[in-house]
Design a protein around this nucleic acid. Structure first.
Length: 431
DNA sequence: GATCCACAGGAAATTAAGGGTC
DNA sequence: GACCCTTAATTTCCTGTGGATC
């Protein structure tokens, strides 16, 4: 049988890839988890963290403290950096460092279970089921039995806890652990992106956790350039980064509030695009393409990861935008079309208007739609909604999701009613 | 000035699921 | 198997909003 000349040959591809130009020397150096040997422009913060944690070297309890600063300003990296250095200095009874991302592990029960499981080294506490006080006692037992030195509990995105009902309670429990321990001593390090986070803390928690704090300011373009240059030397082969690439990358990230994580992500993506295209150099064009790709990847990933109900709400907004480009979208109409779609999509039940209102808010916060709360006087007070992403991109995303493939060409019956059209004309005049 | 509309959104209650103890 | 616990998602109930209309 004759072979199709256009058919993709995977063996030849790998062969070409292996013999082609090499861009990366150590790609991992551009990952957020990579901790370099030096952290530029964070001397003051490193010094403060080192001063606060140094007493662990002598077996004394460190004070608990908070780290504030916008995203990508090196808060977690600084803590990890100091923890590595501190560990190198310890000859025996090395301190334990337990990292908890409070946006993932967000309930009091799960935080206690997470700490216990990390120390025990296995999943001994199930995700639900046990009374909290039992876990607390078990945790005290294992801390005294297994740790017997200093244990640093690093709570990343600690502000997520205070947004919840019992968030202050678990923080209070964690800061008071030492009162119930005989051998082990714990210290809490809170990391937050929100400068005003302290305002939401219980006074009892502030008294032990909020006494010391370290501020991490945003990086400026020069500092970002310096960080990128140093990291690029580790990550890329010599001479593959064309002049002007790193300054451009730094300038773009500086615009986004000095986020070093974004800058590194952009540089890594540009390198990947160059490597994939078998180019010998990473150019300014790769940076531009990388930024578009990252923006698009983020949207696609977010929409595909939404709960099914939220995807149906978005599909309702999509269909109104598609079949009524001039139609003013209001929240009540979204619910009517959402209700129609629940009949069309198998295995989905209709939720209440209140819940859909929350989903609309979530889509707004994610930047997928734009909402504007306005009063149309006698015609009520409602949200006026607009899609904030490309209609074609959204259609392609829905085409990739099995359940939506058949509804993206469905013209909602609701939109065809004369009553709705007349009312929409009134809204157009009023806003 | 009172009324009305079409919600927004806070708070508490309910439900379902996953798991444990006795 | 009955009962308890936690969590996440959802429902129910309620008050508030703001500008056009009466």
């Amino acid at each position: 049988m004759l072979k199709n000349p256009n058919q993709f040959n995977i063996d030849k591809f790998y062969e070409k890839y292996r013999s082609g130009p090499k861009i990366f020397k150590k790609r991992d150096a551009l990952e957020p988890s990579f901790i370099p040997n030096e952290l530029p422009h964070r001397d003051a913060q490193i010094q403060k963290v080192a001063e606060l944690t140094a007493c662990a070297l002598l077996g004394d309890t460190s004070p608990s403290f908070l780290c504030y600063g916008p995203t990508g300003t090196g808060k977690t990296a600084t803590i990890r950096y100091v923890s590595q250095k501190l560990e190198q200095q310890c000859t025996e009874d090395k301190p334990w460092w337990i990292y908890i991302n409070c946006s993932v592990v967000s309930t009091p029960y799960r935080i206690l279970a997470h700490i216990y499981n990390r120390i025990s080294g296995s999943e001994k506490i199930p995700p639900t089921g046990l009374p909290k006080d039992i876990i607390f006692k078990k945790l005290l037992g294992i801390l005294d039995q297994k740790v017997q030195s200093i244990c640093f509990l690093v709570l990343d995105e600690i502000d997520m806890l205070t947004e919840k009902k019992k968030g202050n309670e678990i923080l209070y429990d964690l800061t008071r652990l030492n009162e119930n321990l005989d051998y082990c001593k714990t210290s809490v390090i809170g990391i937050s992106n929100k400068l005003k986070f302290k305002d939401y803390l219980d006074p009892r928690v502030i008294s032990s956790l909020g006494q010391e704090h370290i501020v991490f300011p945003s990086y400026n373009a020069d500092e970002l350039r310096d960080i990128l240059n140093k990291r690029a030397k580790i990550a890329f082969h010599e001479g593959v980064i064309k002049d002007g690439v790193i300054p451009l990358c730094a300038a773009l990230a500086a615009k986004e509030h000095g986020d070093a994580r974004k800058a590194l992500q952009l540089l890594r993506k540009a390198g990947e695009l160059a490597a994939r295209a078998q180019n010998k150099l990473v150019t300014r064009k790769h940076i531009g393409d990388a930024q578009n790709d990252l923006d698009q990847d983020h949207i696609v990933e977010y929409i595909k990861g939404l709960p099914l109900q939220a995807q149906v709400v978005l599909a309702a907004i999509f269909l109104i935008s598609k079949y009524g480009p001039d139609h003013i979208i209001i929240s009540g109409e979204i619910y009517d079309i959402y209700s129609e779609l629940t009949q069309k999509i198998p295995g989905i039940r209709r939720l209440t208007e209140r819940r859909i209102s929350d989903y609309i808010n979530e889509l707004d916060q994610a930047g997928i739609i734009l909402t504007n709360l306005k009063s149309a006087g006698h015609y009520g007070r409602t949200k006026f909604i607009k899609l904030d992403i490309d209609l074609e991109l959204l259609e392609n995303i829905f085409l990739e999701i099995d359940k939506f493939r058949n509804v993206i060409n469905y013209k909602p019956v609701f939109l065809q009613s004369d009553k709705v059209k007349v009312k929409n004309n009134i809204y157009k005049k009023l806003i």
